[in-house]
Design a protein around this nucleic acid. Structure first.
Length: 584
RNA sequence: GGGGGCGUGGCGAAGGUGGUUAUCGCGCCGGCCUGUCAAGCCGGAGGCCGCGGGUUCAAGUCCCGUCGCUCCCGCCA
C-alpha cells in the first residue's frame, strides 16, 4: 500500500476522500470498542481511528512502520484538536498493513506530541535515528535544509560558482591541530583533513574564478564545546576585485535572506563596529547587542579616588572600567559574588562594586569615592538604585572580564530577548596577538590577512598596534562568520611571515605551493567562512550545535552510534606501515 | 592539561545525618473499556544503584581511583 497523501496535509476539505497513509506509530490509544493511532511522517501527524469490527489496531506498538487505507472524515466539533495541523480531521481505517515492527524503544522519542525526549544526550546519540524522528529534530533539520538552500540561491543569483576543494590535503602546521590520514602508497606520508579551504579558495581566485562558494566540511582536532564540533560545515566564500564592504554586503545579504526565508525574521541592518570599540564598549569582540549595558572608562575617577588597588592599576598603565547596572542595587550579595566569580574566571583579580543611594555610594568600595561622588555620578550617568561594577586590569583582561560580567548580568536580569536577533559586524581586528608561551607574535586571523595601509610603515616596529581587514559577523553574542581581505603582494606576505616568526625557507616549506602560485599575478581578493550550524542553532533557538547536526560528536569527540573512533585491524595498520606506541 | 555538574529497572527522577523486602512517573507484558489525543482503570514482570578498590558489624549513601556524558577555563591561525 503506497501512500498518496502525507501525514501533514489532510484538512476538513478532504472529507470523504479515500487515502493511504504511510508512517510511524507515534501514539496509540486503545478504548476497546474504538482505537486511535497517531501516524507520523516528516510532514506531520494524523489521527487514524480504528473500529475493531472493520480493522483491529491491537497489534500496533509504538513506532511500528505502517500503511493505512481509510476514509477522511471531519471530526465532531468537540473532538477537534486545535493543537494539531490535521486536528480537524481523522482517517477511518479500512485496511492496515504493518510494513515493519519495532523493538521496545530505548527511550521515548516524545513524551507527548511535539515535546522532545528528556533522555540523556548520550542515549539520544547512540540511537540518533530515533531521536531524529522527533518533531524537534525534524524541524531543526528542515531549518538547516531551508537555510542552506536560501544561502545558495542568494549566491547563485549573484554569479557565484559553487566549487569544491579537496578534503585530503597537505598538513600546514599552523593554528589548530590537524586530523591526519596516512598514505598507503607512500608509507610515512600523511594527508591532513582541511581546517578550512583557505589556501585552495585563494588559489581559485588566482585562477580567475572571481566569485566562489561551497558548503565546506572543515576539521579541527581541538577540544569540542557546545558551540564547537571537531567537524563542521561552513559556507565558504571568496571573491576578487573587491573591498571589505563588498564582502560584508554579501555576508549580510546571505544572512538576511536566510533568516527571512527560513524563519520569517527580518534582520536589521548590521552595524559595523571596529574591534577596539567593541572591546571598550561591550568588553567582547562578539558583543550581544540585544541589550544596552555598556562599559565605561573609570581610569580618571580611579586616579582621583582613594581605592588603592585601582590607583595602582592606573599608575601601572592598566585599564579600569565600570559597568553601570540600571536598577541593579537590588541584586543580592550572593548574586554579586557570582558575578565576581565570572570576572575571576576571565583573569580579573576581583570585581569591585558599590550601590548608588539617594545621597552617596552604599557599600562595597563606595566609601573610597565619596569625595568625588558627584563627579562620578555625572560622568557615568548614575541614578539612584544603580549597581556599579568595576574591574582594574591590563586592557584586554579588563575588557574581557567586565564584558563577561556584562553578559552574566544580562542573563541574571533576563535582558536578552529570546525571540530577537541583533546582528553586527566587528571589523578591524588586530593583525597579531602576542603569545606569552612562545614569546612571539601569532596571526590573529591567519597569515594571509591584509593589514590596513596606515599600519604598513610601522608593521615591524609595533605589530600589536596593527589592525587589518579582518571582520566577524556576530548575532546575539555568537560569532557566526569570520573573514578577511587577503594579501596578494608576495613582498608584503613575506613581511607578515617574518613578523610571526616564519622564515623565508620555512614559508617555502610550509606554503610553498601557494607562494609559487602567487607569483603568477593573484588578484586582490577576500572572503569569509560562515559556521552553518551556528546560524541554524540561532534560528532554531538551540544552545547546542549538536541539536542541528544529524550525527554529531560528543565532547570527547566520539560518536556513540557508530562507536567511532575505533581501533584498526592489525592488517590495516600493517598495510599503512603504522604501529601503535603503547602507554601515555 | 585544569575546574564544576550528572551517572539508581528500558527511560526520567526520589532516596536528611550509613541501618531489614530500594520509591514514584513513563515505557513494557496481561486484562477491562466506543471518542481519545500524555486516554483511563486493574494486575504483573523488570534493578550487579556506571565500574574498581577502601572505611564500617553494615555503603545507593562516606573516602580514593577510574570510565562515560555535560558545562566552563586553557586550547580552537
Amino acid at each position: 500500500m503506497k501512500r498518496n497523501v502525507t501525514c501533514g496535509e489532510l484538512r476538513s476539505g478532504d472529507e470523504g476522500r479515500s487515502v493511504v497513509l504511510n508512517g510511524w506509530v507515534a501514539a496509540t490509544r486503545d478504548h476497546g470498542g474504538i482505537g486511535f493511532v497517531d501516524v507520523r511522517d516528516r510532514y506531520g501527524v494524523t489521527q487514524v481511528v480504528f473500529d475493531p469490527a472493520v480493522v483491529s489496531a491491537a497489534e500496533l506498538k509504538l513506532e511500528y512502520c505502517i500503511a493505512v487505507r481509510g476514509a477522511v472524515r471531519t471530526r465532531p466539533t468537540e473532538m477537534r484538536n486545535a493543537e494539531m495541523a490535521t486536528g480537524d480531521v481523522e482517517l477511518a481505517a479500512e485496511e492496515l498493513e504493518i510494513l515493519s515492527t519495532c523493538d521496545t524503544l530505548p527511550f521515548m522519542i516524545e513524551s507527548r506530541l511535539g515535546q522532545h525526549t528528556d533522555a540523556r544526550e548520550e542515549l539520544r546519540l547512540r540511537h540518533r535515528y530515533l531521536d531524529l524522528r522527533s518533531a524537534t529534530m525534524q524541524r531543526n533539520m528542515e531549518l538547516r535544509h531551508r537555510a542552506t538552500q536560501s544561502m545558495r540561491r542568494f549566491l547563485l543569483e549573484r554569479d557565484f560558482y559553487e566549487m569544491e576543494t579537496p578534503t585530503l590535503v597537505r598538513s600546514t602546521p599552523e593554528g589548530a591541530r590537524d586530523y591526519v590520514v596516512p598514505s598507503r602508497l607512500q608509507p610515512g606520508n600523511f594527508y591532513a583533513l582541511p581546517q578550512s579551504p583557505q589556501i585552495f579558495k585563494q588559489i581559485l581566485m588566482l585562477s580567475g574564478f572571481d566569485r566562489y562558494f561551497q558548503m565546506a566540511r572543515c576539521y579541527r582536532d581541538e577540544d569540542a564545546r557546545g558551540d564547537r564540533q571537531p567537524e563542521h560545515t561552513q559556507l565558504d566564500m571568496e571573491m576578487s576585485f573587491v573591498d571589505q564592504e563588498d564582502v560584508l554586503e554579501v555576508a549580510e545579504g546571505v544572512l538576511r535572506r536566510a533568516f527571512a526565508e527560513t524563519i520569517g525574521y527580518e534582520l536589521p541592518e548590521f552595524p559595523r563596529i571596529p574591534y577596539d570599540e567593541a572591546m571598550n564598549r561591550y568588553g567582547s569582540d562578539r558583543p550581544d547587542l540585544r541589550y544596552e549595558l555598556e562599559l565605561q572608562d573609570f581610569a580618571d575617577h580611579a586616579a582621583g579616588g582613594e581605592f588603592g588597588i585601582f590607583k595602582a592599576a592606573v599608575e601601572a598603565g592598566d585599564s579600569v572600567k565600570a559597568l553601570r547596572v540600571p536598577g541593579g542595587a537590588g541584586m543580592s550579595r550572593k548574586q554579586i559574588d557570582g558575578l565576581e566569580e565570572v570576572a575571576k574566571t576571565y583573569g580579573a583579580k576581583g570585581l569591585a562594586w558599590t550601590r548608588v543611594g539617594a545621597d552617596g555610594f552604599d557599600g562595597g568600595i563606595g566609601r573610597f569615592y565619596d569625595s568625588i561622588g558627584a563627579d562620578i555620578r555625572a560622568g557615568l550617568g548614575l541614578q539612584e538604585g544603580d549597581l556599579l561594577l568595576m574591574v582594574g586590569a591590563p586592557w584586554r583582561v579588563c575588557c574581557t572580564a567586565l564584558g563577561e560580567v556584562r553578559a552574566a548580568v544580562a542573563a541574571e536580569l533576563g535582558l536578552a530577548a529570546a525571540d530577537q536577533y541583533a546582528p553586527c559586524f566587528v571589523t578591524d581586528f588586530p593583525m597579531f596577538a602576542w603569545d606569552e608561551e612562545r614569546g612571539g607574535w601569532d596571526p590573529e586571523h591567519h597569515p594571509f590577512t591584509l593589514p590596513h595601509p596606515q599600519y604598513l610603515d610601522s608593521l615591524e616596529k609595533d605589530p600589536g598596534a596593527a589592525r587589518g581587514a579582518i571582520y566577524d559577523a556576530v548575532i546575539n553574542g555568537a560569532e557566526i562568520m569570520s573573514g578577511s581581505l587577503r594579501i596578494h603582494d608576495p613582498q608584503l606576505q613575506q613581511r607578515v611571515f617574518s613578523i610571526i616568526g616564519i622564515s623565508a625557507s620555512e614559508a617555502k616549506r610550509r606554503f610553498g605551493f601557494m607562494l609559487d602560485a602567487f607569483r603568477y599575478a593573484p588578484p586582490p581578493h577576500g572572503g569569509f567562512g560562515m559556521g552553518l550550524a551556528r546560524v541554524i542553532a540561532l534560528m532554531a533557538g538551540e544552545s547546542s550545535l549538536r541539536d542541528v547536526i544529524t550525527f554529531p560528536k560528543t565532547t570527547n569527540m566520539s560518536s556513540p552510534m557508530d562507536e567511532s573512533p575505533a581501533p584498526l585491524e592489525p592488517d590495516q595498520l600493517a598495510e599503512l606501515r603504522l604501529s601503535i606506541i603503547e602507554g601515555d
